[in-house]
Design a protein around this nucleic acid. Structure first.
Lengths: 198, 198
DNA sequence: GTTGCCGAGTTGCTTTTTTAACCGGGTCAC
DNA sequence: GTGACCCGGTTAAAAAAGCAACTCGGCAAC
């Protein structure tokens, strides 16, 4: 697959994971504002400059999990099979995410994932930074969809739909329901929303 | 104690341990000659030059466990209390090693330790290199004991005694006896040998 | 006998990391 | 208000690690 990695690359990836995991676990335990980057660096056993070489800001220590999905929508559109509408490809992709309970769809009842979502959306600076990521995502999707205002409009609408769907799912799960229980409604909602997009 | 170590020192120590442990465990499993330094570097997840930065030769990958005791005899003599004969200090030190079943006294029946001794003494290049360590140790002890041929002679005799004692203990344990069982004889032998040194 | 390979070490160059010091904003004490 | 700290983030220099390519000796194929 993507295995022939050298020593250097492997260690970098491990360092990155160590920092990110240490950060998230500390944030979940004590709250975003009560944990300093020094604490995180110490927990991950790296120096402060190293930490910032991997993550440009404190917020990114949390949001890298979203950043991993950065540009995903654009990629889905670009790599869709011939004769398939962009919206259809995105719809299928979202449903696939739903089926495998991908956290980005909001349909995941794993306690850690729930706590993580709570952390992100109840911490202002994180929510704020997240919208910046979404803007870039929107830009990329617009590029993949074509040119002009039309493309931008459609990109914005698609992503808005996805955000609403994810948020809705998350609320249901925050109410105490299980992912499996919510799944049918989530699929129905998605089908409705994407259908209306066309 | 010796805790206030920086990040750098801590990681260096860990790397050193990782290399040394990987080497010894591979050697014990496959034999000294059937394991290449490349294998060890790979197992320890370091590059070959890094390995050689920590250990000058392949043999030292095994012998660092002895090297840790390098100059110990000299130190014991130098740090002995006032009014105490050097030989007495060394005698006490050896007996203390016996009591805590220090591997260097040969009085340790831990299977891994036994296998390790077997590895060292049945691999010619290792045994050879080990004598070089012992020579340096002898030199240091001679320095601590005074000047001239007298000091050298006494140093050589003391270390010879220690080697014989350790070897004897090891043989007994190699015969299947336990360290606790052998202990009284080992102490008696040591008392006899050190007494005769005076 | 020479060609090719393997294993122990080495060498130079680049990348990564640590260290310590710093900046600028915020906060709390006095 | 001002001085002392904490926090997010940066900088420069030096240590350490990785990589690739090398030497040198041994050994086996042909």
């Amino acid at each position: 697959m993507s295995e022939p990695t050298g020593l250097r690359a492997r260690k970098k990836e491990r360092t990155r994971d160590a920092i990110g995991d240490a950060a998230v676990s500390l944030f979940l335990e004590h709250g975003f504002d009560r944990v300093s980057v020094n604490d995180i660096a110490a927990a991950a056993e790296v120096s402060k400059p190293t930490l910032f070489r991997y993550f440009p800001t404190k917020e990114d220590l949390v949001l890298h999990r979203f950043a991993d999905h950065q540009g995903e929508a654009a990629r889905v559109v670009r790599e869709r099979g011939s004769g398939i509408e962009p919206v259809t490809a995105l719809h299928r992709h979202f449903r696939a995410g739903l089926d495998r309970h991908d956290p980005v769809t909001g349909l995941n009842d794993h306690p850690e994932v729930v706590a993580f979502h709570r952390l992100v959306f109840t911490t202002p600076s994180l929510a704020g930074r997240l919208t910046r990521y979404q803007l870039e995502d929107e830009e990329a999707l617009a590029d993949a969809l074509g040119e002009g205002v039309q493309a931008h409009l459609r990109a914005a609408q698609v992503l808005a739909v996805q955000r609403v769907l994810a948020r809705t799912n998350w609320h249901r799960i925050a109410d105490g329901r299980t992912a499996a229980d919510v799944h049918p409604e989530a699929v129905a909602d998605a089908d409705l929303a994407f259908h209306r997009l066309r």
